[in-house]
Simulated scan of single mutants.
Amino acid sequence: MSEVLKILDGALKANASMAGNYAGLLADKLERSGEREDALRIRDRLARAPSAMAFAQDGSRMATAVPTDTESRLETVDVSYPQFQGNGFHLSSAAARRVQEFIGSVSNYDRFAAAGVASVNRLFLYGPPGTGKTMTARWIASELALPLATVRCDTLISSLLGQTSRNLRRVFDFAEQTPCVLLLDEFDALASARGNERDVGELQRIVIALLQNIDALPGHAIVVAATNFAQGIDPAVWRRFPFQISFAVPDASLREALWKTMLGGFCPASLHWDELVSFSEGISGAVIEQVCQDAIRTAIMAGQSEADAAEILRRLGLAISLLNGQHLPSIEDEVRWLRQWRGEAFSLRELAKLYAVSTRQISNMLRGPNAGKTASKATKRSGKPR
């Protein structure tokens, strides 16, 4: 019924693109539910329409033009078509359940509306960087078989007075006319709290425009907002999002699932999972993904069919050093850091193998940058090595 009503809205507004977009989505839904003949009849009607409507024959393609900033002429929305294969997406149990609740609410919106219990399709994701907020939005779009329209704040926010509010209006018009999941990533750039001493009138107007556009959007339109800085979001914005999910760094069980999924067929047989899960405590899924990709690339360049377990730990240790603000400009610094971080995992022989040097060279590195000079001076004084 949502698609039928939107087709009617498009017809009443003489908006052929809107009517065509939702007709294509209706055909897709009918086909997925087994009503293939009705889907073919809709697509046949669309095929007879003018060429501008031909895009709507497939609900995954858009006939509506992507909105642009009139000042820069750049698009303010990036459209993508996420697809996930197999079991390639993991969340904590609580977040996963809440995401499924949101997908269920979207999928059953018409039934809930008929019973008078429908909730607007608005989801707010917040938490530290790299914990899966953007990936979750992509997953939702994939599960709903809809394109993901990601708002580009770099082009949406304009230096011209009032232009940002107009850009927002065009973006929400696009979301109303086009079946999609609208993602407001880095949401704090648009919805920062009003009233602080550094606030200016234009920023207040942007928040007001955002609130008005969210309120004006039909309840069945899907909006996902994501931010790393939930504490800075305007209180009035929170009330517009009945579904809210807090993200945190993964726990032990989730870290194990992430490591196994991201290493995939390159998992080394000698890898001690308990050790890897323990060593990676407190890091985000994005860091785990980067470590796995680095280790796999190293294996491929070496002509190996699986990643090296020690190389995975080395990459993890170096990633943690960066997170701790520990800069390692030389190999000597890396060696000393790895021994300090997890000495039990990095023996002299293991470090020598990883860095393709002798164990004696590793020993010299571990003594410090002045070890060689100190030994030389001692030899001169005593006449023999100490």
Rank of each mutant, 00 (worst) to 15 (best):
Val4Thr: 10
Lys6Met: 07
Gly10Met: 00
Asn21Leu: 00
Leu30Ser: 00
Leu40Val: 08
Arg45Thr: 11
Ala63Lys: 11
Ala63Val: 10
Thr68Asn: 10
Ser72Thr: 15
Ser93Asn: 01
Val99Thr: 05
Gly104Lys: 06
Val106Tyr: 04
Arg111Gly: 11
Arg122Cys: 00
Leu123Ser: 05
Phe124Ile: 06
Gly127Ser: 11
Pro128Thr: 06
Pro129Cys: 06
Gly132Arg: 12
Thr136Met: 05
Ala141Asp: 12
Leu144Met: 01
Thr155Asn: 05
Ile157His: 12
Ser159Arg: 10
Ala175Asp: 04
Ala175Ser: 12
Cys180Asn: 05
Leu183Pro: 09
Leu184Pro: 15
Leu184Cys: 07
Ala193Glu: 05
Ala193Asn: 03
Ala221Phe: 07
Ile222Val: 15
Gly232Ser: 15
Ile233Ser: 03
Ile233Gln: 06
Ala236Gln: 04
Phe241Lys: 06
Ile245His: 04
Arg255Val: 12
Glu256Arg: 07
His272Trp: 01
Asp274Met: 01
Ser280His: 07
Ser284Arg: 07
Val291Thr: 15
Met301Asn: 12
Ser305Lys: 08
Ile312Leu: 01
Leu313Thr: 04
Arg315Ile: 02
Arg315Ala: 09
Gly317Leu: 09
Ile320Leu: 02
Leu323Trp: 04
Gly325Ser: 08
Gln326Tyr: 14
Ile331Gly: 06
Val335Arg: 08
Leu338Thr: 13
Glu344Ser: 12
Ser347Met: 04
Arg349Phe: 02
Ala352Gly: 07
Ala352Val: 03
Ser358His: 09
Arg360Met: 13
Met365Asn: 02
Pro369Lys: 00
Asn370Trp: 00
Ala371Thr: 06
Gly372Ser: 13
Ser376Lys: 14
Lys377Asn: 14
Ala378Val: 13
Arg386Asn: 00
